[in-house]
């Protein structure tokens, strides 16, 4: 019972850590290029993107958590660190195929067509890979891994909401021509990141 309680506490504390102190966009800068391209792409739906990112983050974190120790039984045991990215990409591929297969059966064709643009970019990006590498490097337990993965995706979604809201304010002709687009968006994000940084003052854990 106490181990269950400990696991739940670990889950929540690592979720909060991932949302705030180690926010995936504002502190760790992961998934930013992809996120900005997603905002500017009318085919991609932010809600679907964030939902699928959460799903893939959880699935891939679990897959890598269970499969990474098996590398020790292969000829690549000495090179685990160098082979881990390959394992992560393979897990992302497998989870993508599974999710697409399930959705193609369970969901209407028109909805599936709208979803597929977001699924592809949400299934493999630096936010997912970076978070998984972080959790594997730190040697987190299962509950901590799930909590951190969940918190990362929630933190990503909250950060994207703030950035999208900011895009409404900064997309106008009064912004100097040279600052329009990427420059002013990055300056906007830097201010938000500075505010989030002040919450804990933690440096990013590489």
């Amino acid at each position: 019972m106490s181990s269950m309680v400990n696991a739940i506490i670990s889950f929540f504390s690592y979720s909060v850590l991932a949302i705030g102190a180690q926010n995936v966009i504002f502190i760790r800068g992961l998934g930013l290029s992809g996120g900005l391209r997603m905002i500017n792409d009318p085919k991609k739906d932010t809600m679907y993107f964030c939902a699928f990112l959460t799903l893939f983050q959880m699935i891939n974190s679990l897959l890598v958590y269970f499969l990474r120790p098996l590398i020790g039984f292969t000829p690549f045991a000495r090179y685990t660190r160098f082979v881990t990215p390959v394992l992560i990409v393979v897990c992302c591929t497998v989870s993508y195929i599974l999710v697409v297969f399930v959705l193609s059966i369970a969901v209407q064709k028109s909805t599936f067509k709208r979803m597929i643009y977001s699924i592809t970019s949400a299934s493999i990006n630096s936010a997912i890979v970076g978070t998984i590498i972080f959790t594997t490097t730190l040697g987190l337990t299962l509950a901590e891994t799930i909590g951190f993965a969940f918190g990362s995706s929630v933190g990503y979604m909250l950060a994207m909401l703030l950035i999208i809201e900011g895009e409404r304010k900064i997309r106008h002709d009064l912004v100097p021509a040279n600052f329009r687009g990427l420059p002013i968006t990055l300056i906007y994000i830097s201010v938000l990141a500075m505010a989030v940084y002040a919450l804990t003052g933690h440096r990013v854990a590489l």
Partner: peptide, 12 residues
């Protein structure tokens, strides 16, 4: 903080 965002009354 002000002019890069457009200047008077439009900074966020």
């Amino acid at each position: 903080g002000k002019h890069a965002f457009g200047g008077k009354d439009v900074y966020p």
